[in-house]
């Protein structure tokens, strides 16, 4: 179980999830330079939306058949919340100094989390999420859970779709232009408000997919799962170079693999035998972040941006 390939695979699965969430952070940041702190909660509400759909479906329904419906349900919830947040919380603050939207984002994050806690039936405790089945597949010595296959497949589909969208569609190119220079883009006739809404919507969509994947992977979802996941995903976005969508996915994968390896191998380093294990995984993730920021402040795929004077 503890072979290196197995750890790499585990890291890859975890990392795809981080990457999916990180894309939401990175796209929004790239365009409006806002850390959408509530993105972790959008991920969480996506999972709850999907769970709600599952609970509404007739008992004993095949999970594979239900999965598309759950994804759609989760996506609707997440996208609505993300777009609503942009429209009613962030947009009025667009000209304001940077701290204002950041604090709004923190408030929004708490409010969403508590709204689920207070009003979603039974959400004070962890809620069980349907499972895809427990028998893992084996690839050589590596055991792969079915959930993880869904996760990787979803991540690949999302990434390829997004890359195609950004490269080929008019909107996608407008998006890139807006990220480069919002004022000029506006002068060129691009409706920046629309572009920003689309960025939030795509972020919400991917977060919902990640939320479903999270539920499948861990079997349970909680009202406060967005905080940790969001924090990790943002770390991944910074690692990969904030503003760069490929960087977000790469950062997620690197972070996931680093975390899996740290959990498994740190304890083998002489003098650190007590610092391995799951409990310390997050600590190592953040240490990695700080080291990367020291060595390569713009992130793995980021470009150095000079402040124009």
């Amino acid at each position: 179980m503890h072979t290196l390939p197995q750890q790499l695979a585990n890291g890859l699965f975890l990392g795809s999830m981080y990457g999916l969430i990180a894309i939401g952070y990175t796209m929004v940041y790239g365009i409006v330079q806002l850390i959408n702190f509530a993105h972790g909660e959008i991920f969480m509400t996506g999972a709850f939306g999907a769970l709600t759909v599952w609970n509404c479906l007739p008992d004993g329904m095949n999970i594979w058949a239900a999965l598309p419906l759950m994804l759609i349900g989760g996506a609707i919830v997440s996208v609505l919340i993300a777009v609503g947040a942009e429209r009613f919380a962030y947009r009025p603050l667009r000209g304001a100094p940077r701290l204002a939207p950041l604090i709004t984002a923190i408030g929004l994050s708490l409010a969403l989390q508590q709204a689920i806690f207070v009003w979603y039936p039974g959400a004070d405790n962890a809620k069980d999420f349907p499972q895809l089945g427990t028998h893992p597949y084996h690839l050589g010595s590596i055991a792969i859970q079915r959930n993880d296959i869904f996760l990787v497949a979803a991540a690949v589909v999302c990434m390829v779709g997004l890359a195609a969208f950004v490269r080929t569609s008019r909107t996608g190119r407008a998006m890139q232009a807006t990220a480069q220079d919002p004022d000029t883009a506006q002068l060129m006739g691009i409706d920046t408000n629309r572009i920003i809404v689309i960025a939030f919507a795509i972020g919400g969509l991917f977060a919902a997919v990640a939320g479903v994947a999270f539920g499948l992977k861990y079997g349970q979802i909680t009202y406060n799962m967005g905080f940790q996941a969001g924090l990790k995903a943002f770390t991944a976005a910074v690692l990969g170079g904030i503003g760069n969508i490929y960087g977000a996915m790469l950062g997620g994968l690197v972070l996931g693999i680093a975390e899996a390896c740290a959990t498994a191998y740190i304890a083998n380093i002489p003098g650190m035998h007590q610092l391995g294990g799951q409990g310390w995984a997050n600590v190592w993730a953040f240490v990695l972040l700080i080291v990367v920021l020291l060595v390569r402040p713009q992130g793995l795929l980021g470009e150095r941006v000079a402040d124009r004077a």
Binding site: I103, T104, G107, L108, L110, Q113, A115
Partner: peptide, 11 residues
């Protein structure tokens, strides 16, 4: 509802 109210207040 305290934390919820708190979050909304911040916004």
């Amino acid at each position: 509802y305290e934390l919820f109210a708190f979050g909304v207040t911040l916004i």
